[in-house]
């Protein structure tokens, strides 16, 4: 049996960790405060909302409910009736390109606008 770690394993782990950090820094770099909240449902545009205006938006579709809150230029999912509530765990977003995703309801809330809007992956 081979040892617990071989040279190739160490290199593999190092490369993957570095790739992960480089990708996340590239995604985070050049992000400015956004201006608009864009909601996409099932790949189609659902609506756009002004990030500067405090409001609570309820999305009720096919029996699924999501409620998100725009407050002081940030967006947060405050209510969801799916079983895992992953979207509520995704926290607060405010920078261009950041997203909150609700998988069961096929919902993507994205911050758009702002100065630089490049996203290396999408």
């Amino acid at each position: 049996m081979t040892p617990m770690f071989r040279k190739a394993d160490i290199i593999l782990i190092a490369v993957l960790i570095i790739a992960g950090f480089v990708m996340s820094f590239t995604l985070a770099a050049g992000r400015s405060d956004g201006t608009t909240v864009t909601v996409t449902r099932d790949g189609r545009l659902y609506g756009t909302y002004d990030l500067a205006k405090d409001q609570t938006v309820e999305i009720r579709e096919d029996g699924g409910v999501n409620i998100f809150e725009i407050k002081d230029g940030t967006v947060r999912m405050i209510e969801a009736d799916c079983h895992n509530k992953d979207c509520m765990q995704q926290g607060v977003i405010s920078k261009t390109g950041q997203t909150i995703v609700c998988l069961p309801h096929k919902l993507v809330i994205e911050i758009t606008g702002g100065e630089q809007e490049y996203d290396t992956i999408t």
Binding site: A19, G20, F21, M23, S24, L27, T40, D42, G43, R44, G97, Q98, T99, V101, L103, K106, L107, V108, E110, D119, I121, T122
Partner: peptide, 12 residues
């Protein structure tokens, strides 16, 4: 499933 590539932001 969500017809969006935005989810790849979580990949790192």
């Amino acid at each position: 499933l969500i017809s969006s590539l935005k989810i790849f932001a979580y990949f790192p």
